[in-house]
Design a protein around this nucleic acid. Sequence first.
DNA 1: TAGCTTTCCTAGGGGTCCTAGGCAAATAAT
DNA 2: ATTATTTGCCTAGGACCCCTAGGAAAGCTA
Lengths: 190, 190
Amino acid sequence: MARAGLSPERVTEAAAELADEVGFDNITVSALARRFGVKDASLYSHIRNAQDLRIRVALQALAELADQVAEALAGRSGKDALIAFASAYRSYAKAHPGRYAAMQIPLDPDTARASAGPRHAEMTRAILRGYALAEPAQTDAVRLLHSAFHGFVSLEKSGGFDHTPRAIDDSWAQGLHALDAMLRNWPAAG
Amino acid sequence: MARAGLSPERVTEAAAELADEVGFDNITVSALARRFGVKDASLYSHIRNAQDLRIRVALQALAELADQVAEALAGRSGKDALIAFASAYRSYAKAHPGRYAAMQIPLDPDTARASAGPRHAEMTRAILRGYALAEPAQTDAVRLLHSAFHGFVSLEKSGGFDHTPRAIDDSWAQGLHALDAMLRNWPAAG
DNA sequence: TAGCTTTCCTAGGGGTCCTAGGCAAATAAT
DNA sequence: ATTATTTGCCTAGGACCCCTAGGAAAGCTA
């Protein structure tokens, strides 16, 4: 029997593609095996189990997104950087819905530390350098920005904005405009 | 054989409790049947299928949360209303993680229109009455607020804020403070 | 070429979803 | 009160999925 040339990397990549096609919740070891023309049991030489597969997809997605955000951010600062960051984030979620969903699964602390997660946090902080926020305001702002981006993308995907005629792209642009203003006038604690 | 006294309502309620205990993704018809001391096939007289069960939980959760938000909002306006709304939202998510996750599944348009979703939208708009925003700014602000609340709660739950010492409650309070300031100084389009 | 490692296989157990058809309990009709 | 009807829960069983154990062949190493 000819070999299919599997490896953890190829399996993970195929799982990511499958997730984008059928949804992260619907990736199964069996479907993945079918895609390779292989029996499902054969995949267990390359992945530990189904959960391990999902975590691999999540880690790959985090790294991919971090790369794209880093590229979008290069040479920009202030509001330009804010918009570039947010747009890269939203574009990735739209282009790769399965991978984006994968990124939301909770990782155990060790895995999270070794992932691209810290890069994301660092880049978000980098944006805020243009706004001169001292701690702990910086952390609060990072959390709020991250929340707003993730929330928007997530609600957009689940259809939460569908029942109002206003174009979503316009709300997004205006929302970023407002967030920029908010960061420039960050209020004192109280 | 004595009957278990099942009904669509009791099954849905039990599914919601189960979701809060083991996570929305882990509710199964089998587990629910075990909880009632009944065979899994027996539940199919009360629910159409597993997806139907999930939708019922989602609709119940939307209605419950709408009730709680309405109560929290009564007699408040401006920043008080903003904080009351956001706190009710976050409290519900913490107290009922499974139900909260259920609310995120996409509903088809007819189901969504008949759900408590429109009540949520209306209440969010009610908050903004204290800030005197004209359309389309009002819609943009509604979307941004909803995004920020949902994003924050969702990231908090998946551990996205765990790697910074700043207390999450403090970030939440300060974030609401900043959002209030943003709404009071909503920028002109551009 | 002989041995070793890796890759994929078959076999099989256990779980979940769901349908079909049957019997018994609760309810309605006579 | 007896009969008829509806309803609730049952057993049986198919399809799919996850995962383990152990075997055979492909490819590498000596």
